[in-house]
């Protein structure tokens, strides 16, 4: 074997290694994006569950507090393909509605002691836990992805592919703790 073939062989091997490495890095980034998308769907599911439970609670509260006309709940529209900031906003509105429900319920002891309300309170606690789990999973995946975007040489590949940092799903300070609801 002549030295020329050896050099060509080495060059081809180096090119092959670079191509395999490049593909593996691209796949790594793509996997990170897929994980974020999956986690984002998890937030959708959790938001829908929370919305449904809150709607049930609002209906129960309204049936007890027919005379409290000033209690206006925020209008929440959940739709497909919401951005993270829109999801944040919807979640924030749900927080506001939950606060209003609790305020109204304070004035109606018979409401607070009703089986339906107690069951819904337990249900909302569980829904909140799912919401937090979805948020933490999403943020964890975003954190991993964002780290890849600032770590060389993955950052160069991401730049070439036009990948940009993703926003975190923020939570109210109160919800960073585990859910505590007084029954």
């Amino acid at each position: 074997m002549t030295p020329v073939y050896i050099i060509i062989g080495i060059v081809l091997l180096v090119i092959l290694i670079i191509v395999v490495w490049y593909i593996s890095q691209v796949n790594k980034l793509n996997r990170a994006v897929v994980k974020i998308d999956e986690a984002s769907s998890g937030i959708d599911v959790a938001l829908t569950k929370r919305y449904d439970t809150l709607t049930k609670m609002m209906d129960v509260v309204k049936s007890y507090a027919k005379h409290e006309k000033e209690t206006l709940f925020e209008v929440i529209n959940l739709r497909k393909d919401m951005t993270i900031s829109e999801k944040n906003e919807a979640n924030h509105k749900m927080d506001e509605n939950l606060k209003k429900i609790n305020v109204v319920a304070e004035n109606y002891p018979e409401l607070r002691s009703s089986d339906t309300y107690v069951t819904l309170q337990k249900s909302i606690a569980d829904v909140e836990e799912h919401m937090q789990a979805a948020r933490r999973l999403y943020n964890s995946n975003v954190s991993i992805y964002n780290q890849l975007l600032v770590t060389y040489p993955t950052s160069s590949i991401a730049k070439n592919k036009g990948m940009t940092k993703k926003d975190f799903f923020e939570a109210d300070e109160i919800k960073r703790e585990d859910v505590k609801i007084d029954l």
Binding site: A133, R136, L137
Partner: peptide, 9 residues
């Protein structure tokens, strides 16, 4: 993974 985050608060 969601269940992991749900259980392990």
């Amino acid at each position: 993974a969601h269940e992991a985050f749900y259980i392990l608060t």
